[in-house]
């Protein structure tokens, strides 16, 4: 009985705080993505445009995000019945967008970031084999064009 109450409490806490945290995070992601729109990130090896490159720098951004208790239980139910696990989709979406934002924020004075690579790894496994938290690393080469050399 005690265990069941604990389970219920954890479910409610997870739902309330997790829902709030996700909403807040999406809001901040959307806001920062708009601000950093002027810095393009591409996954090609050559920069767009014919300007001469003056300087390059390797840059990266990473984030570790955890899923809440409620969603983990939900995901294990989905695991039983099959279908898209929406709760993990939003987790990975948030983590990837946050990692790219941090990559951009680390070099705001660059003109372009080329050859973007994204790497995902789950660093913490919970009970059984369920994903506890994922780490996403985004890295690329920041390009500075000649007319806009950093001081």
């Amino acid at each position: 009985m005690g265990q069941f109450i604990l389970f219920l409490v954890l479910m409610t806490l997870g739902y309330l705080f997790g829902h709030y945290a996700e909403k807040k995070h999406y809001k901040s992601i959307n806001k920062r993505e708009k601000e950093l729109l002027k810095l393009p990130v591409i996954s090609c090896k050559n920069p767009i445009g014919n300007d001469t490159v003056a300087h390059v720098k390797l840059s990266y951004g990473s984030v570790v995000i955890s899923v809440d208790y409620f969603k983990r239980i939900l995901a294990s139910l989905y695991n039983f019945f099959g279908g898209n696990i929406r709760s993990y989709e939003t987790l990975l979406d948030r983590a990837r967008r946050e990692a790219i934002l941090r990559l951009k924020e680390s070099t705001t004075d660059a003109d372009q970031i080329i050859n973007l690579r994204i790497e995902t790894s789950s660093i913490y496994k919970g009970n059984g084999n369920s994903i506890g938290s994922v780490e996403v690393l985004a890295y690329g080469t920041a390009i500075y064009f000649e007319k806009n050399e950093p001081t």
Binding site: L10, G14, H25, S62, V64, S66, Y69, K71, E98, S133
Partner: peptide, 23 residues
């Protein structure tokens, strides 16, 4: 802290820092 965050969800700042340092 990470154990707590696993209930509430959200970013694990301690782990992010740790991985950044080791990188």
């Amino acid at each position: 802290m990470a154990g707590l965050k696993n209930i509430f969800g959200g970013e694990l700042k301690g782990y992010t820092e740790l991985l950044e340092e080791s990188r």
